[in-house]
Design a protein around this nucleic acid. Structure first.
Length: 217
DNA sequence: TTGGACAGACACTTACATCA
DNA sequence: ATGATGTAAGTGTCTGTCCA
């Protein structure tokens, strides 16, 4: 290389060779390239025009890997996502590629794999969330129904209680004995007679509900 | 122990190839 | 012709390792 190398050519060349190699070939340009690399904002990559800068158009053109190369790379990735130096060199030799290309391929493949995995996790979580929302709706509806039933039950208790008090206060000396009286109609709550109705079970727990909670809704 | 060189990984980006 | 998409490769940064 000589001093006629332009900045543009330096940029182009730097795209295809590591800085270490450039520094051996043209130390001054390497310093400039290294300085440029630390600048912000990012240096825009030059558009790659065929034959520009006297370069070989085919060399500059982005190469697509062959089916065979991809197949071998995929197999290798399938067995291990990480790429040790030794395996990289072996693969590169086997595929006729630059070790750097193999490293880049693994880098990109890991990125694609991670992206796909994140998509799948997102879909799974979304599905679980939707299922949970539906279940929540169902439980809320059930809760409303139960509250309604409880309200009706309280009204019935109140009605029966008033009727009972009326009977007791109107005929304290009635000749009717308790034994002869018809028990009040308890409808669907007639479970085990009046005593059981007014006094919750000792465990205070029936079918997942606390009696205490039922009375204080 | 420390600091610099270096390599590898990763996120982000760019540019090219391909296809609908 | 053109916009969308996939992908090879560039860039910046961080981290771990080695060695003087």
């Amino acid at each position: 290389m000589n001093s006629e190398v332009t900045d543009n050519q330096t940029v182009l060349i730097s795209q295809y060779y590591p800085v270490g190699i450039i520094s051996q070939l043209m130390p001054e340009q390497a310093v400039a390239a290294a300085a440029a690399a630390t600048m912000k904002p990012r240096r825009r990559r030059r558009k790659n025009k065929e034959n520009e800068g006297g370069g070989d158009g085919l060399l500059m053109r982005k190469r697509k890997l062959s089916e065979e190369q991809l197949s071998l790379l995929e197999n290798s990735f399938g067995s291990e996502h990480k790429l040790e130096a030794e395996r990289k060199d072996r693969l590169a030799a086997e595929l006729g590629l630059d070790p750097r290309q193999v490293a880049v391929w693994f880098q990109n493949r890991r990125a694609r794999w991670k992206s796909k995995r994140l998509d799948e996790e997102y879909s799974k979580l979304k599905s679980e969330h939707e299922t949970t929302v539906v279940e929540k709706c169902r439980l809320e509806t059930e809760l409303l129904k139960l509250k309604e039933q409880l309200h009706e039950a309280k009204k019935e208790i109140q009605r029966l209680s008033e009727r009972w008090d009326g009977i007791m206060s109107n005929s304290p000396s009635s000749c009717l004995s308790m034994e002869t009286m018809e028990p009040p109609f308890l409808g669907e709550f007639e479970i085990g007679g009046l005593e059981n109705f007014f006094y919750p079970p000792e465990t205070n727990y029936v079918h997942g509900f606390e009696w205490d909670n039922l009375y204080y809704i």
